[in-house]
Design a protein around this nucleic acid. Structure first.
Length: 191
DNA sequence: TAGGCCATCTGGTCCT
DNA sequence: AGGACCAGATGGCCTA
């Protein structure tokens, strides 16, 4: 990072001079005083060096905003991790794992509610769906595990990420979005 | 050491 | 004009 800026300064404005007491950057003026006065009278004429300084400051501000934006995004991801079922000693889910897991989790909850509505007052099967959906033994709407996707208004469609790497929510042994041992513990947790 | 994940910088584009 | 958003590039850290 420092190298980038030092690069910028050295290459784009070789008239820059650095003062020892501050971080500011200045450009030495090679022009005679008379010429400078003319420019000043004409108004908003900026030297090339000044333009470079302005550009650099804008870039630094933009970097700062971008950093904050990404921090906000990460905070939101952390909040999402916080509401997903997890274990205290579990390693933190990666970003993509968090998103996929959340997607599947929401779908499973929706399915649970739907089944519960359908079987209201009949049986206590609904709570089992949540666990079986995550853990691989959920009944699949299609014979192949992941060829089905959420399209249209069907509430029983599977997560759209089903077929995407790294994991399939319906394959018993392939759960790229959750560590294997976590799945084993999650199984007992949900049940 | 290769590969995965992440933070950051950067330039482009769109919007207000 | 300036800010938000996005995607690509880059380099650091960690793990198998």
């Amino acid at each position: 990072m420092d190298s980038i800026y030092s690069d910028m300064e050295s290459s784009s404005c070789d008239r820059f001079t650095h003062t020892d007491d501050e971080d500011s950057v200045r450009c030495a003026s090679p022009e005679p005083a008379q010429q400078q006065q003319k420019k000043r009278r004409r108004g908003r004429v900026r030297s090339e060096a000044t333009v470079q300084v302005v550009k650099k400051n804008r870039r630094l501000k933009a970097n700062d905003r971008e950093r904050n934006r990404m921090h906000n995004l990460n905070d939101a991801l952390d909040a999402l991790r916080g509401v997903l079922p997890a274990f205290p000693d579990e390693t933190k889910l990666t970003k993509i794992e968090t998103l996929r897991f959340a997607h599947n989790y929401i779908w499973a909850l929706s399915e649970t509610i739907r089944i519960a509505d359908l079987q209201a007052g009949k049986s206590g099967d609904a709570p089992r769906l949540l666990s079986t959906t995550f853990l691989g033994s959920a009944p699949s709407p299609g014979s192949d595990s992941c060829s089905w996707s959420s399209s249209g208004s069907s509430s029983s469609s599977s997560p759209a990420y089903c077929a995407s790497s790294p994991g399939s929510p319906t394959g018993a042994e392939d759960y790229g979005y959750l560590p294997q041992d976590a799945l084993m513990r999650f199984r007992s947790f949900v049940y």
